[in-house]
Design a protein around this nucleic acid. Structure first.
Lengths: 217, 217
DNA sequence: GTAATCTTTGACCGGCTGGTAAATTTTTTA
DNA sequence: TAAAAAATTTACCAGCCGGTCAAAGATTAC
């Protein structure tokens, strides 16, 4: 019974075989361009022509490296999640509670400052109901539950005020990512005041105060 | 020199003349449907066919009431901004500082609970660079600056901790709107815990504590 | 150097998109 | 009740969308 596979081989570059130099370069180029476009228009609002344009490639050439729009988007999200959750993974059970939380906030704020497009890509996806990332969110839940337990232990030991750990995480995510996701609004409201990256230092100061006074026992 | 205006009259319903019963009804129906669609796909991701479908109308019929896609979107945003900023307008200079801020937070959280689609519509617009609302944001700045002055006076009078008022507002916006904009994520992370509307009460408790301890002198 | 492989291109496709024109049906007005 | 106005529908359009195909051009391996 010989299987006659049609051996359809679209977009070879995405096969699991070893990649050539050009493949690695172009894939990076495309992902970079796609990040720009997806972050500022959302999945449905972004077009392959835009991405190809931004990357300086023709559309068919782009599709030689990624078999379709969704694959590009998915890969960006996968890559993102890993970096995005690192600060939370690094929250150390054995550290000093308040300074652990302070440095978690600091790191999240640095991500918002240094990787605003990634933040917006994620925000777009969640905002629109996470239709293409829903599954990965359960991993997030596991991680958060684990870290929430640490917070609760600190609370119980009197090293932190009593508070709902999950909502504490929400508050930290919201306040830090706000500076990336709502950047336009922040800039308008601050006007000339927080020009350049100064606003991130002001934000860091404010958030430090808010959470330390709000959470330290 | 008689001007021979072509008298192009598309979408009569949107003229400034008195509206019929049917016009009022259908316009409302369309805006309601459009809110759904725009909130979950953003401007570019939303299609007129989707909106017409959701409203139970044919596309040309929809365009009889609104002359194009942008008009619908614009009207939703205009309507929204008014309601959205009301809590801030109500922040009362002569009230007791901490309770004023507490009730501001409470009201913003209620908006997030009761009008999540409006929150997402706004979030989508800002996230994508506010290309269709940029101008109105300057009104926001004026309002915020005015209210920031009140906060600063309270701080100076020792009725509140010293803090940057603008960043305080950002923190309040971020934390409250987070429950509407990132609802999917919140629900996944809370799992069975904050089912129904219980999560909003938990959130209110947490945010009250955070901001009161963080800001009360 | 040449054959095999990898990369790029141009031409194309069916379906969707925002939007229009005109004819028809329904409602209001007198 | 009949004419005028308002509302709806059908048919349509040009341009864009994600994606395919086959052939040509560039690299690499031997």
């Amino acid at each position: 019974m010989p299987q006659s596979k049609p051996e359809v081989r679209q977009s070879r570059a995405s096969e699991t075989r070893k990649r050539t130099r050009i493949q690695l370069e172009k894939e990076e180029l495309i992902l970079e361009a796609a990040l720009d476009v997806f972050a500022s228009h959302g999945f449905r609002g972004a077009t392959l022509d835009q991405i190809a344009d931004q990357a300086g490639l023709s559309k068919p050439n782009l599709l030689y490296y990624f078999k379709n729009k969704e694959t590009i988007h998915r890969q960006l999200l996968d890559r993102l999640l890993d970096n995005w959750l690192r600060p939370l993974r690094e929250l150390n059970e054995n550290g000093e509670p308040v300074s652990e939380i302070k440095s978690y906030i600091r790191r999240k704020l640095e991500l918002a400052r240094d990787y605003p497009r990634e933040s917006r890509l994620f925000a777009n996806e969640i905002l629109q109901g996470a239709p293409r990332i829903g599954d990965e969110l359960s991993d997030l839940k596991i991680l958060v539950d684990e870290k929430a337990k640490i917070i609760r232990n600190w609370s119980d030991a009197g090293q932190l005020k009593k508070c709902d750990p999950h909502h504490m995480f929400f508050a930290i995510w919201a306040t830090t990512q706000h500076y990336a996701d709502f950047d336009v609004q922040v800039q308008v409201v601050l006007g000339g005041m927080g020009q350049g990256e100064g606003r991130f230092e002001d934000a860091a100061r404010f958030l430090d105060q808010l959470f330390v006074e709000g959470l330290a026992p």
